[in-house]
Design a protein around this nucleic acid. Structure first.
Length: 583
DNA sequence: GTAGGGTTAG
């Protein structure tokens, strides 16, 4: 066998072994040593092997040895090294190799080398360096563009991503998908859908990856109309939930977020293959809807399978326990998650535990738990504690939590409002007003409460508190007044403490009746057929009075009412709520 | 050899 042939065969062999995940040590390395005069491809196969499996230092050692022994690298050598630097986020080494490509000459302008270099910089968080490489490349292809588009999207800069995309001469499916997904990931679901429509208009194929982006956009819109539409699209294009585990999991999440946990479970049941995403999405879905028992049952079912729970699964079960008041079960899970399942509790899991204890009224213990955390508590942890203080009316611990929150999240308006509500409930109006002053000084404005309801044909109607701009405003007011009379006869009493302004009781009653979800409910009653479920979405937490009002309304009208606030779903049915008055 | 995907708490 000649030298070239010999190198060729051995290179192939090493590549195959690497692909089979056989450790580079010892066999591929032994193969390599059999060859007296390795050519660049053989060197590179081995360098690549170490680059993929680690340690990266070993591939660099080999690269240097190769140079010393007089063999020149090929572009493939650099691609492998950049890929590895990107994987371990070693930008310094990446820069050194970048410099090499310039010194040796010819490689810096190579398409593959350039593309892997962009990817390396971007992965390490040096977007501008990636952009610079892109600008200086002699030749670019759709891969170079897409890498940057994705990088901008991940940085939340959809405008730059869009600009690049505009300038991309030939847009393929992957590039389009990057845009659709980018919009979805940046909470711009409408633009994601528009982008998807355009993609279809110009005749670009779509696949399951595209669909997942679209499904995520629909989940954010939370409307049944879009949910059913995208499911249809998925099934018609041959990527239905039965066959495709990723599409299936995305659909489970979407239906949960659109208010239909039943539909989500149907998808789950119909899936041929389930993985940790499918289980976790379903468990989180159950938890969101207050179905704690179902969440726990599914978790135990999961434990009987090969699928191992991960950190998100535990977020799901802990949230379920928290909303159902299952303190002991939650405590057990928290204690065993590391020991039995190898999932070390993160700050997020601590936040769940603080929530669990806090909701159950064990505020002191919750505060103690924060003190034992092995990491710095983040906003979620203190936020959970503050939320619990609102439920149980504890302004002192609230103050501790709020002080941390004001440091950690100085611009998050919700924290100020929560504390202000806690002060107001305790009648500490002086504290309320000094907090208001602080908010004014910081230029923070209250996020107006808003609710929307899906009427016939999926048309969405939006209401703000005290809103009279709807064309049927007068009828809405009338419906609401009539309903109020009926509910009062059923025993409903307005909960005046839900108004956190220091005003007369009469004024409080008036304010309560102008809350946006009540307007949305009245419109829902007006615009849908009797017996029809009414689904309301809102952007802030539902107040206690509205919650009681909805409970009573579900009984008096015989309607099922579903409200999604910023955190979870409330199912009102026959005078009770799925959250067990626990939110 | 290079580019796009799903679940996360207040």
């Amino acid at each position: 066998m000649g030298l070239e042939q010999c190198c060729y065969v051995f290179t192939k062999l090493i590549r195959i072994l690497t692909r089979l995940d056989v450790p580079v040590h010892p066999y591929p390395y032994l193969v390599f040593q059999q060859v007296k005069y390795p050519n660049p491809f053989l060197w590179t196969a081995l360098i690549r092997g170490y680059a993929i499996q680690g340690p990266l230092s070993e591939s660099v050692v080999l690269y240097n040895r190769m140079r010393r022994e007089g063999t020149g690298p090929v572009s493939f050598t650099f691609s492998a090294l950049f890929k590895a630097c990107g994987a371990v986020l070693d930008v310094n080494l990446g820069r050194q190799i970048h410099a090499q490509t310039i010194v040796i000459g010819g490689f810096a302008s190579d398409l593959y080398v350039g593309n892997t270099m962009i990817d390396m910089y971007v992965k390490c968080g040096f977007l501008n360096c990636g952009r610079k490489v892109f600008e200086e490349m002699g030749e670019r292809d759709v891969v170079s563009w897409t890498e940057l588009i994705v990088a901008y999207a991940k940085h939340g800069d959809m405008d730059s991503a869009g600009e690049l995309f505009q300038g991309l001469p030939v847009k393929d499916m992957v590039a389009w998908t990057a845009m659709v997904t980018g919009y979805a990931q940046n909470a711009r679901p409408r633009e994601a859908l528009q982008c998807f429509e355009k993609m279809q208009e110009v005749g670009v194929e779509t696949d399951d990856v595209t669909l997942v982006g679209v499904i995520s956009a629909c989940a954010q819109l939370g409307a049944a109309k879009y949910a059913n539409w995208v499911r249809d699209v998925a099934e018609k294009s041959g990527f239905g939930p039965t066959e495709n585990v990723v599409v299936g999991s995305a659909l489970i999440d979407m239906y949960s977020k659109c208010g239909s946990v039943e539909e989500a479970y149907k998808i789950f049941e119909g899936m041929k293959e389930r993985n940790v995403f499918s289980y976790s999405s379903m468990i989180v879905g159950f938890a969101m809807h207050g179905c704690a028992h179902a969440a726990m049952q599914l978790f135990h079912e999961m434990l009987k399978t090969e699928t191992k729970p991960n950190k998100v699964t535990f977020i799901g079960v802990l949230t379920a326990c928290s909303h159902a008041g299952l303190v002991e079960q939650g405590r057990q899970l928290f204690l065993t998650m590391d020991k039995c399942f190898g999932v070390a509790p993160s700050a997020d899991h601590y936040a769940c535990m603080v929530d669990l204890l806090g909701r159950a009224g064990q505020l002191e213990e919750a505060l103690e738990l924060v003190g034992t955390m092995p990491m710095e508590p983040h906003g979620g942890v203190w936020g959970a504690l503050l939320g619990a203080c609102r439920i149980h009316g504890n302004p002192d611990i609230a103050q501790i939590a709020a002080n941390h929150l004001f440091e950690l999240e100085p611009n998050r308006i919700g924290n100020y409002i929560l504390l202000s509500n806690i002060y107001a409930s305790a009648g500490r109006w002086d504290d309320v007003s000094s907090l208001r002053k602080l908010m004014r000084k910081k230029g923070l404005k209250k996020n107006p409460g808003c609710s929307w309801v899906e009427a016939k044909k999926g048309v969405i109607h939006e209401f703000y508190a005290g809103d009279t701009s709807h064309p049927k405003s007068i009828e809405i007011k009338q419906t609401l007044d009539d309903l109020l009379d009926i509910l009062k006869a059923h025993g409903y009493q307005p909960i005046l403490s839900s108004v956190t302004y220091d005003v007369s009781n009469e004024e409080k009653r008036r304010i309560l009746m102008s809350h946006s979800e009540k307007l949305a409910l009245a419109y829902g009653l007006l615009s849908t057929d009797a017996g029809c479920l009414i689904k309301i979405m809102k952007n802030v937490r539902i107040c206690e009075d509205c919650h009681a009002f909805m409970c009573s309304a579900s009984q008096a009208t015989g309607r099922e009412i579903v409200i999604r606030d910023n955190v979870r779903f409330h199912h009102f049915h026959d005078g009770a709520c799925s959250c067990g008055n626990f939110w």
